[in-house]
Design a protein around this nucleic acid. Structure first.
Lengths: 338, 338
DNA sequence: GTGAAAGCGCTAACAG
DNA sequence: CTGTTAGCGCTTTCAC
């Protein structure tokens, strides 16, 4: 009866049904909890499953339910971002959280606002929903998602105002840090270096900066504000410029920019904070470890990821979720701005 | 005939078959290239597919073919490794490479040698094969994989001697760098700090170090060799010890250890390389950017990932692959050891 | 409370 | 070269 081929066939619903002398329908119900099954049968089934070491073929289940139990996570793989700790940590948070709810995580790459990989995955119907870890102003991902009717969550502000979003308080953080720097150590001549303004996060950062400057009664120092800075060479020119204009404090958009900046400064003999102060609008372990350690805003990337995952899974399960969730930040005042 | 419900039903094989007045078998064959189809029919099918914007339901395909077109990538999410650039870069290489061959990447987390997530994914049958990015001496992942008959590739040496492996020449690199440091700047008193010896990569590094020392005619300086160093506190004690023993040069196992080490050294006023020299057996962008930049071995994590993916996919497609592939390294001699 | 049967969208014998 | 048919392993009506 059992065909004992060399490949040990994996045990499936039928097997445990036959073993128990009941129908696989009942077994299915006992497992899923949908429909009524007598307490006694349920226990027998659950026991048998354990004994026979049954575990469902998720592909068959997917096929039947039209639900994959996978979510896709779009991660930037541009040169500049490839090694940014944020995305890695965020992905960990997502993956761990999904695993707890028996979902898996599919990685989707993007560079700039390329949606080809996202489209490929969506067309394959391998995911139930998507997390965008770096929303862009263009909103092309969101458009695609909406047009295909696929649920998604963005980590950071989306240009799709209806998008479910989990964000860190970048604007508020930027505001606070800028204000702090303006209050402290007067007279202060601030410089600002931000990455691509296509990234919504950089817009939030900029907004916070501008508000802080304005509410201090000053004018935005356009000559020392550099937006859309990208790549090492461009950054070098910006730094030179900032030094030329005798900036007393440089605010860097994120940890990567900050690392480059700090390095360039010290390579030309500038001592932080004696000669110039430096702060970052995004902390990472690399800034913790610099000497002197760098003043920075600290956000919990892992928590962001976990929250994004929970939001998305809640949506998939039909619960309603708040449109926007905000996580706080911590301001780490350290020696680089003393 | 077409039920125009609110949800636009996705076009499937039947639709284009009906459209063309042929059977879906023929359509399937035209797409896959398996079985013979007249050139004319094939073209008609391919055209129709384009026009009707058909794209196959991969879940149905998976179910039918018993092949998921997914590979699982096991990534360590221990505290220490969570932000290590290696795994991120490796994952990018894998993901990009898989995408080219129309596969997707499922992330599987692990801490230490926990196999629970791997087991969960394997039991779900959601992947065709696995890449282990941090093989451990215990080999528990490999055992599980072998016992379930799932193909896999390890990035780095595996304790399973039959495992298909793609590795960087860590041993050779470690040998070369150590030799270089021994030749240069005599007299040299070397210290070595390695992470967990459960990780096979650290064993390779250690082996290279030992060989280099021995072939220089010296004895392995056991008092200044620290294996299995883990966590900031332990590292601090090790560094203190190395200073006490008047080490002239510290070799760090990887970029993370090196960053901590360099930071601790400069926080107690040690100047590199004047007071003490520092090198790392694994480079990352963070070491590039230190000042002074740190002498280190450079491996191409992205290439490793891409190669691992190609190997695995080749295996899945039944091609045979060499058991072990080795990628080279570059020795970056920089100011930290001058 | 339980079972029989249909069906998810594709592939793969087998027959022509 | 093409079509018919039978699954793949689940979930889910529908009937009892």
């Amino acid at each position: 009866m059992n065909n004992t081929t060399s490949e040990t066939r994996t045990v499936q619903l039928d097997d445990i049904a036959r073993e128990l002398g009941i129908s696989k329908t009942t077994v299915s119900r006992a497992i899923s909890g949908k429909g009524r099954v007598s307490e006694k049968t349920r226990e027998r089934v659950l026991d048998c499953i354990r004994v026979m070491n049954y575990s469902p073929n998720m592909i068959a289940k997917s096929f039947s339910e039209k639900k994959t139990y996978n979510i896709g996570v779009v991660i930037p793989m541009d040169n500049m971002e490839t090694e940014a700790p944020f995305f890695q940590t965020c992905l960990m948070g997502i993956t761990k959280c999904c695993a707890l709810r028996n979902y898996d995580t599919l990685v989707i790459s993007t560079e700039r606002d390329d949606v080809s990989q996202l489209r490929r995955v969506l067309e394959s119907r391998k995911t139930d929903g998507i997390i965008i870890t770096r929303p862009l102003q263009s909103g092309s991902m969101e458009q695609l998602l909406v047009s295909m009717g696929v649920p998604y969550v963005t980590v950071g502000q989306s240009s799709d105002l209806d998008a479910v979003t989990i964000d860190s308080a970048h604007k508020e953080g930027s505001y606070e840090l800028t204000s702090y720097l303006l209050m402290n150590n007067k007279p202060q001549k601030l410089g600002l270096i931000l990455g691509s303004m296509e990234q919504t996060v950089n817009r939030s950062r900029y907004e916070g900066f501008v508000r802080a400057v304005e509410s201090s009664g000053a004018l935005v120092p356009n000559k020392t504000v550099f937006l859309g800075v990208n790549g090492e060479m461009q950054l070098r020119r910006v730094i030179d410029d900032l030094l030329q204009r005798e900036c007393s404090c440089i605010i860097c958009g994120d940890d990567m920019i900050c690392m480059y900046a700090v390095n360039m400064l010290s390579s030309i003999g500038k001592v932080i904070p004696r000669d110039i102060r430096v702060a970052s609008l995004y902390n990472s372990m690399y800034l913790d470890m610099y000497s002197p350690p760098i003043t920075a805003l600290s956000f919990r990337a892992g928590d962001l990821g976990a929250t994004a995952a929970n939001l998305l899974l809640d949506m998939l399960e039909g619960k309603d979720t708040s449109r926007e969730t905000m996580l706080g930040f911590e301001m780490l005042i350290r020696k680089s701005t003393m």
